[in-house]
Design a protein around this nucleic acid. Structure first.
Lengths: 172, 172
DNA sequence: CGCTTCTTTCAGAAATTTGTGAAGATGAAG
DNA sequence: CTTCATCTTCACAAATTTCTGAAAGAAGCG
């Protein structure tokens, strides 16, 4: 084995980097801040789905501070989780298939607050005014979506189970 | 009728403004730029669902330039449409129930580009590598969602029809 | 305990974004 | 063809966001 004694390589670092930057760019365009996007893409493209702070910093050529900020953000929106390795103080950041899908659709919290704001609007503008009625219909849409999305995720789990097997897939 | 001879009032401008700013704040938090968010909220809370540039500027206390920038943005993402009044050079910006729901779910274009980036990644990292497999599953998720969302919107149209009647509701 | 290794926090420099005023366009009306 | 009203574009100023280097905080290990 020329590549490695222990599991790693045959990964062309340049190909990886190309994908990372390209995918990160899409995420940025969708509204994610730049550093979190790059970090996330790097994790997604890693072999194990988990990297240490140092590895991230090196691969992306960014300071430890930047890594720290990015992972804090990503953890907050539940796109990654943090793990401690028992021995060393090293922390390890992991992208966990399941949880990040959910995070994406998990505009839930947002949707709920939109609903609140709209309800307030309906009341204060009056449910029978034209504006009030428009708001009410918009509200109905969000309530509809909220429920539908939940159902959809359920269907996805089934679909995926059949397509990819094991429930805990996408672990390392 | 104490309030008005022609259609308008009984709208407490302060209540309207409160709603507009509150709802706009939620939109901002969801990632919309500030001015577009405020303009959009103002349209949503208007009686007819359509306002002129001047009216928007006055209500929101912003310059014509700011209005122009905001409506350009909103039109681009299909959250409003522009109408010319036949006579005057005045333009009128309208929020059209249907189209803005669709715009919201219409991360479609975005999703498609994500798909492209992921497909590329699967190829260049190799479909049988661990990272390649993770990417492939992620891709499958997006393809699934794309289809499901389309179905969901169809169901919404039916649901709404029954609840709110006429197909062209939410016009002025 | 005190060293060593990581990570986080903080203050500031750099870049980006946002909104304004002023100067063009554009088109209807005289 | 000029004028008036209205929208858009442009260059710049202001505010905000984003990264970095440096210093401070934790956790294992001798």
């Amino acid at each position: 084995m020329t590549q490695a004694a222990a599991g790693a390589v045959d990964r062309d670092p340049e190909a990886v980097s190309r994908f990372v930057e390209h995918f990160a760019a899409q995420l940025v365009e969708a509204g994610l801040p730049r550093m979190p996007a790059r970090v996330f893409a790097a994790l997604l493209a890693s072999d194990t789905g988990a990297l240490t702070s140092a590895e991230l910093g090196e691969q992306l050529k960014i300071s430890p501070a930047a890594v720290s900020g990015a992972v804090r953000y990503l953890a907050q929106v539940h796109m990654i989780s943090r793990e401690r390795e028992p021995g060393s103080r090293r922390e390890r950041y992991r992208v966990h298939g399941d949880q990040w899908y959910e995070a994406l659709t998990n505009r839930e919290a947002i949707i709920r607050r939109w609903g609140d704001a709209l309800r307030e609007g309906v009341t204060s503008l009056g449910p029978t005014t034209p504006a009030g009625r428009r708001l009410a219909e918009t509200l109905a849409f969000f309530e509809f979506v909220e429920k539908e999305v939940a159902d959809m995720m359920e269907r996805w789990r089934v679909h995926r189970e059949r397509r990819f097997g094991s429930d805990t897939s996408m672990r390392d």
